[in-house]
Amino acid sequence: MTRPLLITDCDEVLVHMVRHFADWLDQEHAVDFSYNSWELAKNMRRRTGEPLTQEEMWAFLHGFFPDQMHRQTIVPHAREAIAALSKQADVVILTNLQDQCQTHRVEQLAAFGIPHRVVCNQGGKGTPVAALVAEYGPSVAVFVDDLPVHHQSVAEHAPEVWRLHMVSEPQLAAGIAPAPAAHARIDDWRQAQAWIEARFAAAEPAPPVEALATT
Rank of each mutant, 00 (worst) to 15 (best):
F64V: 12
Q72H: 14
A177Y: 07
L147W: 01
N43V: 01
G113S: 02
L61F: 10
D67G: 03
H165P: 02
R45I: 03
Q191A: 14
A30G: 13
R185P: 04
A194H: 07
W24I: 02
G137K: 14
A30D: 06
E160Y: 06
R47K: 06
A179K: 13
D26E: 14
A179N: 00
M57Q: 05
V209H: 06
T127V: 09
K87D: 02
Q98V: 13
C120A: 12
E204H: 07
A203Q: 10
L212F: 11
D11T: 03
T73V: 11
S86Y: 03
D67K: 15
P115S: 10
A141Y: 03
A194L: 13
V140P: 08
S37Y: 14
F64N: 06
A22I: 10
I74R: 13
F64G: 12
R19V: 08
P128Y: 09
F33D: 11
Q100P: 03
I7L: 10
V15R: 15
D26V: 13
I176C: 06
P4V: 06
V167W: 00
V129Q: 11
R19D: 13
T48R: 10
Q100W: 12
E39Y: 09
Q88R: 15
A111D: 02
A206Q: 13
W38C: 00
A213W: 11
E39P: 03
L6W: 02
E197C: 04
V144W: 10
A213D: 00
I186H: 04
P4T: 04
R46G: 10
D11A: 15
L61N: 08
V144F: 01
A130F: 11
V13S: 15
G63L: 01
V142A: 10
H183Q: 02
R79C: 02
P159T: 03
R45L: 12
